[in-house]
Design a protein around this nucleic acid. Structure first.
Lengths: 282, 282
DNA sequence: ATGTCTTTGTGAACGCGTGCACAAAGATGG
DNA sequence: CCATCTTTGTGCACGCGTTCACAAAGACAT
């Protein structure tokens, strides 16, 4: 899940579906592990298990790349590693720049997973003049002023944004203007980019929120008869929470919002609407 | 994209589609921004733009939550903020533990986006005895030995794994055994967990690889007649890369394969396999 | 060579997610 | 009270992705 952007025909021209592309790195990792153990071949079943997917899906994915397997035997590990690497464009070296050398940026700079996959940190860039020259992960941080020059000199086409949300769009614009066509965004903002530029985003807080949603659901299900009738609009107990009567106050009583705070939070399940008060205008 | 795990009926029981759940945090963020600017209402169109999605999609998403809008007017910002927060389970406080306080773990601990969304870092855990007691982001790191006790004492149900790949599964098992039911995994490994435990993964290197794929495609398209006939198996220049002749060497002839090597390698496109050496064992 | 056994590659069905387009709801003005 | 205008909520169709299930391909033994 990335590129919150509109939508894109993506891989339309060449056959490979986006979903498959997203899994190739997974297969590659599993294959690399096998390769290191000198395992000559793997069946789709084994590899699928290692990659955490369904074997049928894996075979279909590979079928988009071509017929690289041998019936009755499986896939040649080394060969497949190469084919996937080539498909992903990992047989060449990709210089990347990381902009925003805070905690996260520094962590990324130190992350070993990049180098091992053909990605080379060409430069670290930060807006803070005090950071300039300071070495992080063995590389001297450079000032934002140099951004365009750095990108141009190194032929960088992939940029990583690890700045605060407020600076992200601005940095993004400069990166794009400088020739970057792929961006990995860690800032919690929606970036708008021109046609032809790919953006993938990684948002830690969003991931946690999604987990929280499921966590809440799990907790709720224990307390409620498992398969509750799928009531039309509302959910089991919530029923008709009165919507703000339009024109009225655009300001639900935030005061008591401490919310579920004190009390047991009824078993767990979000009270049928017992805790609406927290927000609903009284 | 997360939970590489098999697959899950997910939200089946209660109506909300997984894809919608994944977008709720996005809407919430946009709404929070509006709220801070004291904007009373928004139309689906405006909000959709702010969140970087299609307005029809947004309306449909909201329709799963109930009818919270007013025709002719739009949505009440504050009210919607509350409804989505409640739906995501953010009206309650979620204590989380971060295991593996290396560069990334420390960055996560310092990340402000958590606290602002109802997530509280309950503890930082690391296997290195030398780390124990050291304060990171204002919290003293505790040793792995305490893991079970920490989780139990604080009623933690969400765990973040930021350890090296090798330790991830082991840590995961302990977390699960201790009662954790949601895991956010930053380690580049497929975690296997029992039924009922949710895992979402964030893999930096995978994201970059996906970008590299598209980047390569873009570069290739410039050099090739845009809409190349979708030739069956291979792609434009690659044609029939000889597969390992089964029983034979499980080791594609890397040497001679330089094959197409010499010639132009069409512009930018990854040479048909001209640069095999990079990956293939010589 | 022939038969058996394993595993791939894929046709086809299904289900989810997306986007269109429009009717219904409600606000607003006269 | 009625007309008009805005914006929601959703039925419907379409396309992508997943899964099943099986025929074909090839290895291997006899």
């Amino acid at each position: 899940m990335a590129t919150g952007r509109t939508h894109r025909p993506a891989t339309r021209s060449r056959g490979i579906p986006e979903a498959t592309v997203a899994r190739l790195p997974l297969y590659l990792r599993a294959l690399t592990a096998l390769s290191e153990r000198s395992v000559p071949t793997v069946s789709s079943e084994e590899l699928a298990t290692a990659a955490g997917v369904n074997s049928a899906k894996l075979r279909k994915d590979f079928s988009y790349l071509g017929s690289y397997g041998t019936r009755g035997v499986g896939y040649d590990v080394e060969y497949l590693v190469y084919q996937i690497s080539r498909e992903l464009g990992l047989t060449q070296d990709w210089p990347v720049v990381i902009v925003g050398i805070g905690n996260l940026g520094a962590a990324l700079a130190n992350y070993g997973g990049f180098a091992s996959r053909g990605f080379r940190v060409a430069a670290l860039i930060d807006a803070d003049p005090a950071m300039a020259g300071k070495p992080v992960a063995g590389i001297a941080v450079q000032h934002t002023d140099e951004l365009e020059k750095i990108i141009d000199d190194n032929g960088v086409s992939i940029g990583v944004i690890a700045t605060p949300a407020g600076a992200a769009q601005q940095v993004c614009d400069r990166l794009v203007a400088a020739g970057i066509t792929s961006i990995l965004n860690f800032a919690p903002t929606v970036l708008s980019v021109p046609e032809g530029v790919d953006v993938r985003k990684v948002d830690l807080s969003i991931e946690l929120q999604i987990l929280a949603f499921h966590e809440q659901r799990k907790a709720g299900e224990e307390a409620t008869p498992p398969e509750r009738e799928t009531a039309g609009t509302g959910e089991p107990g919530v029923a008709t929470t009165p919507k703000p009567s339009s024109a009225a106050s655009h300001r639900p009583a935030a005061g008591g919002s401490g919310g579920t705070g004190g009390h047991s939070v009824d078993g767990n399940r979000q009270g049928p609407d017992g805790d609406v008060p927290a927000v609903m205008p009284a």
